[in-house]
Nucleic acid binder design. Sequence first.
DNA 1: CATGAATGAGTGTTCATTCAT
DNA 2: TATGAATGAACACTCATTCAT
Lengths: 210, 210, 210, 210
Amino acid sequence: MIQGLDNGQAPEKVDAGDRGDKRIAIIEAAVNTACQVGLEGLSMAEVADRAKVAKGTLYLYFTSKDQLIQDAFWHCHEENVAACDKGLDAIAGALPKLLQRLRNAVNWALRNREKGQFERMCLAKSQYGATTRYQNQHLQFKSVDRIIRDGLDKGELRLLPSPVLGEMFFGIGGAVLYYLLSNPEALEDECFWDQVDAGITGCLGRVSVD
Amino acid sequence: MIQGLDNGQAPEKVDAGDRGDKRIAIIEAAVNTACQVGLEGLSMAEVADRAKVAKGTLYLYFTSKDQLIQDAFWHCHEENVAACDKGLDAIAGALPKLLQRLRNAVNWALRNREKGQFERMCLAKSQYGATTRYQNQHLQFKSVDRIIRDGLDKGELRLLPSPVLGEMFFGIGGAVLYYLLSNPEALEDECFWDQVDAGITGCLGRVSVD
Amino acid sequence: MIQGLDNGQAPEKVDAGDRGDKRIAIIEAAVNTACQVGLEGLSMAEVADRAKVAKGTLYLYFTSKDQLIQDAFWHCHEENVAACDKGLDAIAGALPKLLQRLRNAVNWALRNREKGQFERMCLAKSQYGATTRYQNQHLQFKSVDRIIRDGLDKGELRLLPSPVLGEMFFGIGGAVLYYLLSNPEALEDECFWDQVDAGITGCLGRVSVD
Amino acid sequence: MIQGLDNGQAPEKVDAGDRGDKRIAIIEAAVNTACQVGLEGLSMAEVADRAKVAKGTLYLYFTSKDQLIQDAFWHCHEENVAACDKGLDAIAGALPKLLQRLRNAVNWALRNREKGQFERMCLAKSQYGATTRYQNQHLQFKSVDRIIRDGLDKGELRLLPSPVLGEMFFGIGGAVLYYLLSNPEALEDECFWDQVDAGITGCLGRVSVD
DNA sequence: CATGAATGAGTGTTCATTCAT
DNA sequence: TATGAATGAACACTCATTCAT
């Protein structure tokens, strides 16, 4: 079986240039292919074909199939996280930050469908059992976690353990994202977003309901 | 690649008796194995070993590995859905029904860890792309969907498309379930459940937040 | 690299019958092939072809290429040792025993050229460095070793360490064998054998030369 | 498979100088590596690494891996033969010459363990079948062959075909060498050498035994 | 001369599936 | 109905060799 995303550590950056170009081309071929045939159906031969390099060439850039998948995951994940975090510092309050973060996530995912799908496929491998992505991958989710812990400290959020709040946020976000992926027109619908914001606020915020 | 849960149709029931017994033994062997080695790491040889039948025998009961996985999924899923739906008819109101349903789901998952994990592994395969389990698997989720549509009709739920509400419910429920799988003591914590209920109500209920 | 003949332990015997037949057919295909292309040039695909079985079938009988080679070695080696040891018990004296043993070895090798060559190829892998077949494979050579130690105890042999005498015996024997493999007519030449016997006796026997 | 030492021809000498230096560095890297990983486990990449040249550079000095191994063999073999032959002309009589030659061989092999091992590994490849190093490599063994033919002509040696005597000499010498490689202290043991000399004389000399 | 990225044929091995018994 | 030996396509990975720079 393909291994999980074990250490949760982003690899050191590789220089750009020719070497980087081919590396990226291979990663993109892997991402495209995996989106069609799945993570385990991914064959090195097909990746090589799509990247228009020889099979052996793959092993100049990645030590194994697992390594290629891990590197491809981090390639997508870092881009995603960067896009999601953009501009968050300028926003005050945990809830507004989270609301904006969801918009960022949706925008990126709609513009990068394959990378997004690939990232989700990789993440899905780590949440079958009792552990969750939020818990065992906290490095990846650290920005959301930081916001939530901050919000808890300041009394802005519902009194639930931070991992629960984090997972709830990703769960609700996933619901919105899935819907928008097949109904992109709702992206411009202010009423839709009003309700989504209200839902998140009602779930995560320190509000009481009668 | 192992195929998704394509048709969303529960297979016709098979008679009990000898035939049914061996069928179930094989399914349970598949579930146990998959929980240890993953869905793609599952080998027919190991399933046959664990079920104490010959490899060829598997093909008397299932036409292929994919079919075995699908059937095993339905085996778990139907049991899960039945447990989740139990007693819901006696409850009035969409939200109370959903709150109870979550309790039912958590109780079943904690008592049937392997079946639950197996079911989640199978479901994960169908929600990578733009489609969601809620949409393409509506048969499986029909009971939740019915509750939600009913609640929307009666004005009890937030004005969002029913698939969004459905996914939100499963997303929040997943967050709670994941947490309880590793922190079962919270199961008895009334405060915890108060907050969870409030969160779900705040997210899905027709409430406004300031 | 192909591993040496590591443990020096003959494997437990396998039952005859259908299973044994195919096992032997594969071993013989491996032996024939290796004699033509060498031990490392041996490919499982070619062995399967020659044995007229599918590639996968090889792995029903042998866990790996290395295992196949080891098993094939033991198959040849045991046959060889048995042929060499035949009738030795009836002969008194270490030197007469060794002289007869050489005749036995030559007769077997001439009648089983490929098995003999294969066995020698395998043995060659363990004597490159400081260690010798005689030392690290004493199980295989135990019959010669026993004769030599016996002869030393009884004062029939030259006062050299038994491994030296053993290697000398195999060295001289190899010289004779190599010659006879390309000059089989000498097999019937009594003068040739008289000289060979005298040479072995002069080398290994407790004789002094002026 | 790596080819045998086919033509038995020492290659023409290459000039010293820069070209020669790098050539020698590569050969030595190949010898060292092969002693650790075996002849077929030898990889051009590792040789290049150890010789601190680029992989492509190897092909400026050697047309192929086989060629490199052959050239490396000759490099070791010529050094070995030269050391073995040193001072032999001053000795009268075939047997004394051969006894001294063995001492020379042992001394060189103990002082040049890797080169010696490498040479033996290469030679092992040519003596599996019916042919022997002595026969198809007569160029390499010509000095021993000359001594033996001379000794036969002069009636000093046992009446056996010269290839048999030659192989016997190498066989006995190998036995002594293997022993000394792991028991170097015997090198200084006069009794040991007395017995070895007596053994060789008894085997190869024109002596009769009763 | 020297490089090292690129190649691609070849390797050993696995495993879902079949079918004669 | 049940078996399990046999299959063979598919796989990840290696490495001697080439060639543009």
